[in-house]
Amino acid sequence: MTDTAIIHVAHARLDAAAAPDFRAMLDTKVGPECTRVLLDLSAVEFMDSTGLGVLVWLVKHVGDRGAIAIAGTRPAVATLFRLTQFDTLLPICGSEEEARDALSL
């Protein structure tokens, strides 16, 4: 199913060092036909502004044609999402099941 991408992010730290790799991975997995993206961040312990910048890029990249849901945010990541209002852009779900429901998968 190329219209759906389910991505388990393996980086423990999504920072400036990891961002280029993370973005290249998203670019590969989220093609132009992709309309639903489930991003599992449960392995991500820390995210900085550069890592968050890649997620903002993903939101713009998918745009109005599709939907993104995020699952498994750790507390530090959740704080960053709250401060920047990123959590108002898309569903931040407690589990992968919830995220699947949010995307009607």
């Binding site: 312990e45 820390f46 507390p75 530090a76 704080t79 960053l80 401060l83």
Partner: peptide, 14 residues
């Protein structure tokens, strides 16, 4: 800035 919060974190949480 949030860099200061990281210096006051409780168990890795700003």
């Amino acid at each position: 800035s949030d860099g200061l919060l990281d210096c006051c974190d409780a168990a890795g949480v700003p």
